[in-house]
Write a protein that binds this DNA or RNA. Structure first.
Length: 151
DNA sequence: GCCAACGTTGGC
DNA sequence: GCCAACGTTGGC
């Protein structure tokens, strides 16, 4: 069954517009076990809220979908990459990524302030687990947010 | 740039 | 296995 997620990216590094340009992109660089485990749970066709973090303002910018399930993140093996992990080896990968495909950019960006004002979504992990960069979203939360965003 | 929150590491 | 130190995330 299709599941719903929220994934954070700093727009200075990779924004919804960057994904729109590329159409598909690997979601590399995740170095948190809980976030990794959520990515391992994803299946092709799952829908993703693309969240801009560390932005002004931060908030939800659009929608993507999973187009490839979890596979080893190559940056963990690359000494020259900032996400290099010396404990990982190609036969013993630690970190995984999925690939995302661009679906849409919201006509109405939904800032964090506005999200905080929607009473029906206050149990989102976004508010309770502030630092988790990959997190599940319930169908109800998905419906409310995508309706607000206009697409 | 600051700093609170919080996940990870490492000494014991 | 505890927990202090440390590093990172992310809002502001």
């Amino acid at each position: 069954m299709t599941a719903f997620w929220l994934m954070k990216s700093e727009p200075e590094v990779f924004s919804i517009d960057d994904l729109a340009d590329k159409q598909t992109s690997g979601w590399d660089g995740v170095r948190n076990y809980q976030a990794r485990n959520f990515m391992k749970d994803m299946t092709v066709g799952d829908r993703v809220l693309f969240y801009h973090s560390n932005a002004s303002p931060s908030g939800i910018a659009g929608i993507a979908e999973v187009c490839r399930t979890a596979y080893p993140d190559p940056t963990q093996f690359d000494k020259k990459d900032g996400h290099y992990d010396p404990k990982a080896a190609p036969d013993k990968p630690i970190w995984f990524q999925v690939d995302l495909r661009f679906v849409s950019k919201f006509p109405r960006f939904i800032a964090l302030d506005e999200l905080r004002g929607i009473s029906a979504i206050q149990d989102m992990m976004l508010f309770r687990r502030s630092r988790l960069s990959v997190q599940p979203v319930t169908p109800q939360q998905w419906r409310i947010i995508t309706k607000r965003g206009g697409g």
